[in-house]
Write a protein that binds this DNA or RNA. Structure first.
Length: 435
RNA sequence: GCGAUUGUGGCGAAGUGGUUAACGCACCGGGUUGUGGUCCCGGCAUUCGUGGGUUCGAUCCCCAUCAGUCGCCCCA
């Protein structure tokens, strides 16, 4: 029997993990700059939490949840997104208490799970980095968070992005608008695509961003949700737009943009890549305001704003632009060995060098010296330490700096006893001399 | 859940209903018996995702299945 990984999962091999580590490090730095602190919540929760948070009608619940019964017959689901778990933790740990700074700004990073067909930028286990801000209705929160979402990409030099915003208004607004939209679309029922005919009653807002050509034509003259906003929502949206302009952040209003999750109100946004190499899944970051969810999950009425970014899509984006990742694990020294005595002596030498902060690899395969040098060269080692019977008899090691080709002898005991002096003089003596 | 397409050594990639499955890269060994990006020589698939079927004979044709890729639904 040959085992293979489950559909929609990947093995990230060292060549890939070095990219991921770099991205994660940069992302954490950025979060610090914005004063967001990390929260880690479980990767599985009661199914009910997600069902409630995400919205019963959503396909995420009906067909994309990775759920199972545990030995205690609890109905469990692997988290399909990050917000519900963070909100649960916020409520359960009473982070809304008076001793916590307001607003509370949290970020998370980790795997999410959805049972769906894999395709470009989409897997069953995928990774998101996301943020949640609790406790403020200030439109500045919306703006700061959206700007952070943009910055997440900009810090890697990604420029082909657009920020798309919309407002969903209040629950009442969406209810009224929903009815108006159905009223508008119903006369066209037979002209709509099959998918959209199903959507019409289940989730009419989804008809608005249909990919079908004919649907788009019909939808063009549909009423805009922005015309149904109440005074408060209107003022909020105007404030958000004004603040973005003051920051010189270009944005596009797309009144047809909707949300897959039910808990959003007022501002919603997406960061979309315009990179031509990107396929169907060009949204790299999406989020918005969800003022009702904390209360829905059992906490005090608390306004909130957040987003989630797909890390696979970020990696893909960087791949498309041939991003040059820095070497995360450079090799300081490679130890060449010749013979059994050298093999043993290399253990000791490697430890001395490592204890003094160097990154060291050594020969294990007992190949010929020439082959070992070739390997050291391929691994881009700064120095090659060569040990053979002659060296061991004399208590020394040959050290060659590959970039200059200059080789010198160093005493093994000096290296062990006075590493700093010995090593810096070694560096000096292998530098390219003045001709 | 639906559709399209692909599946040959570690990787990339030819190939044909018939007997020895090209080639390139990587790797290993040697030429150079202790010193690195060159060159030369040699090695490296009883086997063509898996299971059936058609056939005298299948990597090639058919069916099923698994997996990859891309798209739809949905969504980051």
């Amino acid at each position: 029997m040959n085992y293979q990984k489950l559909k929609g999962t990947v093995d990230l091999l060292p060549e890939e993990t070095r990219k991921w580590q770099f991205i994660e490090d940069k992302a954490r730095d950025l979060m610090r700059a914005y004063q967001f602190n990390e929260i880690r919540t479980p990767m599985f929760e009661q199914l009910e939490l997600f069902a409630r948070g995400v919205g019963e009608t959503s396909d995420i619940v009906t067909k994309e949840m990775y759920d199972f019964r545990d030995k205690g017959d609890r109905h469990i689901a692997l988290r399909p997104e990050g917000t519900a778990g963070v909100v649960r933790a916020y409520v359960e740990n009473k982070l809304y208490g008076p001793e916590f700074h307001k607003p509370t700004k949290l970020f998370y990073m980790g795997p999410m799970f959805r049972y769906e067909r894999p395709q470009s930028g989409r897997q069953r286990q995928f990774h998101q980095i996301g943020v949640e801000v609790f406790g403020s209705r200030n439109p500045s929160v919306d703006v700061e968070t959206m700007v952070l979402g943009m910055d997440l990409f900009k810090q890697f030099g990604i420029t082909d992005l657009k920020l798309v915003i919309n407002s969903l208004g209040s629950t009442e607004t969406r209810q009224t608008y929903r009815e108006e939209l159905i009223a508008y679309l119903e006369p066209h029922l037979n002209e709509l695509s099959k998918d959209s005919q199903v959507r019409l009653y289940k989730n009419p807002l989804r008809v608005l961003d249909s990919k079908d050509k004919k649907d788009k034509e019909i939808v063009k003259d549909a009423p805009s949700i922005l015309d149904y906003l109440d005074e408060a929502s209107k003022a909020h949206f105007e404030a958000v737009k004004g603040m973005l302009e003051e920051l010189d952040i270009p944005y596009i209003i797309d009144t047809n943009m909707v949300r897959g999750l039910d808990y959003y109100n007022d501002t919603i946004f997406e960061v979309i890549t315009t990179n031509p190499k990107f396929g169907a899944n060009a949204t790299v970051c999406a989020g918005g305001r969800y003022d009702g969810l904390v209360e829905e999950v059992g906490g005090p009425s608390t306004p909130a704003f957040g987003f989630g970014c797909g890390l696979e899509r970020l990696v893909l984006l960087l791949e498309h632009m041939d991003f040059d990742y820095p070497e995360l694990n450079p090799l300081d020294a490679y130890i060449v060995t010749m013979g059994d005595r050298a093999d043993r002596a290399a253990n000791k030498l490697a430890q001395v060098l490592r204890q003094n902060g160097l990154s060291v690899e050594r020969e294990f395969m007992n190949r010929k010296a020439g082959k070992q040098f070739k390997t050291a060269d391929k691994l881009n080692a700064d120095y090659v330490f060569t040990l053979g019977d002659q060296e061991i008899d004399n208590g020394i090691v040959q050290v060659k700096r590959l970039s200059t080709g200059i080789q010198t002898e160093v005493s093994l005991t000096e290296l062990a006893l006075r590493f700093d002096e010995t090593y810096s003089s070694l560096i000096r003596s292998t530098e390219k001399g003045e001709e």
